[in-house]
Amino acid sequence: MLDESLLDAPESLARADTRGLLRGAAESGARVRTAARSAAESGLSDLRPEGRPRALLVAGSGPSTGGIADLLSALGGGNIPVSLIRPGGALPDPGALLWTLPGWAGPMDLLLIVTTDGTEPGLSGLVEQAYRRGCSVVTITPPHSPLTDEAGGRHGLVVPLVPAPYEETPEDQPLPTTGLWPAAAVEPPGTFWALLTPLLVLSDRLGLFPAAQPAIQSVADRLDHAAERCGPAIATYGNPAKTLTAELADALPLLWSEGPAAGAVARHFSRALAAVAGRPALAAELPDALSLHGTLLSGVFAAGADPDDFFRDRVEDPQALHARVVLLRGQAEPAPHSAMSAARELALTHDTPVSELEPAGGSSLEAIAELLAVTDFAAVYLALASGERA
């Protein structure tokens, strides 16, 4: 159950935030700038590719990997296929996972590896596979890690991941494992940007979408501005992240988006709600969301569902979740007869509450940065105010 009074108690929030997630969210802009400098020093900004690769292959061991692949695909607008390589087996070493290149991968493809660890033998093995197949490799990994030596020795480009000042290195704090899979880990939001930023620079050099140095600086500035608006010291009534948190109390969020980029943000928010706050959420892009989730507006999750239903289990029964539509849209207000307008009308017809997130003007990258910042803060606030260990 959400303790809304905690949202306006900055000192209590700080005590509850044992993982430093609020600080990590606030430093996202700084992590973008640091990562951009690291990319430039590694020679990424000076690349002169002779053409676009046939496909981008993304692999990594952290929770950010899927979101990074999703966002690159959305920003690329279909110019280049982006494939996420998931681990599909195990190596003999305890807890070691196995990544395998698809059978069609070859010299025309580019492998991107992102990790905050750098000690995974499976990723080193993936670099060796890429070398044998003739794939180009760009790796984002902590400096002086085994993966740095492996990728650099195979003539790949390595961009050192510079951690935040308060973060421990993997050598100081190894990632625990349970069976074959890493134990549940919550990365500070800034880590996502530290891994993504070099790939934005690379995408600009490849001509996938514009992300030159001025654009990267604008993203960092937008993240800083969002952190000022969403910080713990800002009261709920003037804080978009805290407002969204209060609206999502006892709600099943239906994250409806319009456009590929907003869709990637919605899926990122769904993953953050599950990983950080332990809350379920469903994400879908409009107009498909209307048919995919429409039944939830009139079933047991409907706003008007009878709490005294005879068949309801009343033994230690927690407060029922009711659907709430969260609309994520781009900079401009959609046309009167757009899918977004239809979504509002459908929710209104079923007395379902609606929250809306709309970034200020600017580029697509800036809009995405603002949406990601607000939703990341909201996921952390929801965890802290619900008593989850954050």
Rank of each mutant, 00 (worst) to 15 (best):
E4G: 00
S5V: 08
R15M: 05
A16G: 10
T18V: 15
L21P: 04
L21Q: 11
G29K: 09
R31I: 00
V32S: 11
A35C: 10
R37F: 03
A40V: 02
A40K: 00
S42H: 13
G43V: 09
L44N: 06
L44E: 07
S45M: 02
D46L: 03
P49L: 01
R52F: 04
A55H: 11
T65Y: 01
A69M: 08
S73E: 11
V82E: 03
V82M: 07
G88V: 13
A90L: 11
A90C: 12
L91P: 07
D93Y: 03
W104K: 05
G106P: 12
M108I: 02
M108L: 14
L110Q: 08
L110W: 07
L110F: 10
G118L: 08
P121T: 09
P121L: 09
L126M: 10
Y131T: 15
R132N: 11
R133I: 02
C135Q: 04
V138K: 03
S145H: 10
P146A: 03
L147G: 10
D149G: 08
E150C: 15
G153F: 03
G156F: 05
P165F: 01
P170R: 08
E171K: 12
D172Y: 00
P174L: 04
G179N: 10
A183K: 10
A184N: 10
A184R: 15
V186C: 08
P188N: 07
P189M: 03
P189E: 06
G190S: 13
L202T: 02
S203W: 06
L208M: 15
A211G: 12
Q213V: 13
Q213G: 07
P214F: 15
S218P: 00
D224Y: 05
H225I: 05
A227E: 01
R229K: 06
R229F: 00
G231T: 07
P232L: 10
A233F: 00
A235H: 04
A241L: 05
A246N: 01
A249R: 11
L252R: 04
S257H: 10
E258Y: 11
G259C: 09
P260L: 03
A261F: 06
A264M: 02
V265Q: 01
V265F: 12
A272V: 04
A275K: 02
P280G: 03
L282P: 05
E285Y: 00
P287F: 12
S291G: 14
L292K: 09
L296M: 13
A303E: 10
D313G: 10
D313F: 04
E316G: 14
E316R: 15
D317H: 12
P318F: 01
A320N: 06
H322E: 14
H322N: 06
A323L: 08
R324N: 08
V326C: 09
R329W: 13
P334D: 05
H337E: 13
A343H: 10
R344H: 15
R344W: 11
E345H: 14
E345F: 04
V354R: 03
S355E: 03
E358T: 13
A360Y: 05
S363Q: 05
E366S: 13
I368G: 01
A369C: 08
L372T: 09
D376P: 07
A383Q: 07
A383D: 05
G387M: 11
